[in-house]
Computed example of a mutant assay.
Amino acid sequence: MWLAGAVAARRTDPHAGQVALRAWCEDPSGVGVPAVRTAVRFTLEELADVAPGSSVEVRVPPHGAVQAVPGPRHTRGTPPNVVETDPGTWLGLVTGTVAWSDAVRDGLVRASGARADLSGFLPLTVGRRAAR
């Protein structure tokens, strides 16, 4: 799933995304792959809404990727600003149960490029609500 920041239409039903995220918050190890995939895609779309732009590509393989964050647009080849992490770490960052600085320090997030620091956007409001 590749989304292009503010120009992409939502592909994940927001209600389904919130339900999946809440389920992950309640039992991260017990939720199934379909719920994780829905939660990841929903939260990537949320990031694109709160940080519209195309200067950073955020990848959470195998479930999705999005371009976000204001700045110079990237159109071909490997983007200069990339954030990549696994689904569990991403959902932890989104909900605030994992701190950006800790995840980067521990190698759970690979962030390259001058704009690849997402700490100003995370946790997402929707993630904080789900974690309650």
Rank of each mutant, 00 (worst) to 15 (best):
T12F: 05
R73K: 09
G96S: 01
A16M: 07
T78V: 14
Q67K: 06
V7Y: 08
L44A: 11
A99T: 15
D27V: 15
L91G: 06
L3S: 02
T38Y: 00
S29W: 12
A114P: 12
W2G: 08
C25L: 13
E46I: 02
E26R: 15
R11G: 03
A51E: 12
G92E: 13
V36P: 01
V94A: 07
V33E: 14
F42C: 02
R110F: 02
V40P: 03
V31K: 15
A8Q: 09
T75C: 01
S119Y: 06
V94L: 06
G96E: 02
P14R: 13
V109P: 05
P52F: 05
V33N: 12
G120Q: 07
V94P: 06
A48S: 14
V7D: 08
H15G: 12
W2L: 08
W24Q: 04
A103S: 11
R22N: 10
L91R: 10
G53P: 10
D102H: 11
L21C: 02
E84C: 11
R76D: 14
E45N: 15
R132Q: 11
V58T: 10
R128H: 08
P34R: 04
G120D: 10
R73I: 10
D49V: 03
E26T: 13
V98K: 01
P34E: 09
A103T: 14
T78G: 03
A23D: 11
A130V: 07
A6F: 10
F42S: 01
A114C: 08
G113V: 13
W24C: 00
W90A: 05
A103P: 08
G64D: 09
R10Y: 07
E57P: 00
D102C: 07
L118Q: 02
G17F: 04
H63V: 01
D13I: 00
P62N: 03
P72Y: 03
A130E: 09
G64F: 04
P62Y: 05
R128V: 13
F42R: 04
V109M: 06
E26F: 11
G127K: 15
R129G: 07
R59K: 13
D102G: 06
E45D: 15
A111N: 01
A35V: 00
T38P: 01
M1C: 09
E26D: 10
A48C: 14
L108I: 03
A4W: 11
V19G: 00
V40D: 01
C25F: 13
P34Y: 00
T125P: 15
V50Q: 04
L93R: 01
W24I: 01
E46N: 03
